[in-house]
Design a protein around this nucleic acid. Structure first.
Lengths: 162, 162
DNA sequence: CTATGTAATGTTATAATGTAACACTACATG
DNA sequence: CATGTAGTGTTACATTATAACATTACATAG
């Protein structure tokens, strides 16, 4: 398994371009339009490659012309509806989804030390949540799981010097 | 198991007063001060008995004198630090915790139909999350689990008339 | 009992996040 | 070309949260 927290600069260009390619293909399949604005916002999200707020994206858009909050939020809403990005509720931020092809909700590992984030898709977690909810007479439609802690590389460093 | 979504008016008075009594006792134990303001905010949170926003609480406080946002947020921070309330990230809202004596994080069942909320504490979920995170080389310290769906009573009604 | 320090609250202003409402433009289709 | 719908622009505002500093309450040492 590739460490989801690691990404060299070279990888990173690849991350971005392959994410955009996947998005193009997925939107064609779904017959929805990945307009220039939507594509641009998705590109910016992937450039960060960590949770990024709507207003940070807005500032970047404003460096190349005018833009206002609704424009960003609309693009983000669209991207989210297509599963191309996830929203992190505990951070009010967004991140690109690496597996937009198969619908999922994902669980998020948020490193409190380096602010990096990894997405996992763990059937065991999803099943446990589903079972727990149903035991309480509740019919779940959607799960949000955000896990705060320390990523592997921060833990190694932190073991001595933090 | 008592249905966490149900609470008659009579029960409700009992909910509030017993929550306050538990809070008093817990704060004495912890040697922290449940000041009148903090107590009042906790009481208001319990009066709602569903997720309530900081500004809704603020408005209520303002009906009995002046109050400003920092006052409410400080009280909420304190209550949260003592485990007396939980913050629901996906709703930007707060709710009283029914088991403040044993530290826990809880999982939240949010009914999208009636906006009620139930807290469960499911070891299976917590273990699955812990295991899933560790498999990814991540050391979790804290979990946020918010589950959207339909509560039992809404589902019964909704089966026919929604 | 007063002095002193810390915790808690008051107060003002502002930051950060998000949306409503309406105008305009682009684009597909009849 | 006419028309409708999706997408974007624009303005204004709503909602949520915090920074910074003043003041008050309260415990404890002297």
């Amino acid at each position: 398994m590739q460490d989801p927290f690691e990404c060299t600069p070279t990888d990173h260009q690849h991350c971005i371009s392959s994410a955009l390619a996947r998005a193009e293909s997925l939107c064609r399949q779904q017959q929805v339009r990945l307009t220039p604005m939507r594509r641009r916002v998705l590109e910016l999200v992937w450039q960060h490659h960590r949770p990024v707020g709507a207003y940070a994206l807005l500032e970047q858009l404003q460096q190349q012309g005018r833009a206002a909050p609704p424009t960003v939020y609309r693009a983000l809403d669209f991207l989210q509806s297509q599963g191309l990005i996830h929203r992190l509720e505990s951070l009010n931020a967004f991140i690109g989804c690496a597996q937009p092809h198969r619908p999922h909700q994902g669980q998020f590992l948020i490193c409190q030390s380096c602010q990096s984030l990894a997405e996992i898709t763990d059937d065991g977690i999803e099943r446990a949540i589903d079972a727990g909810a149903r035991t309480a007479g509740f019919t779940p439609s959607n799960q949000m799981v955000e896990i705060m802690g320390t990523c592997a590389s921060c833990r190694q460093q932190g073991a001595t010097d933090v």
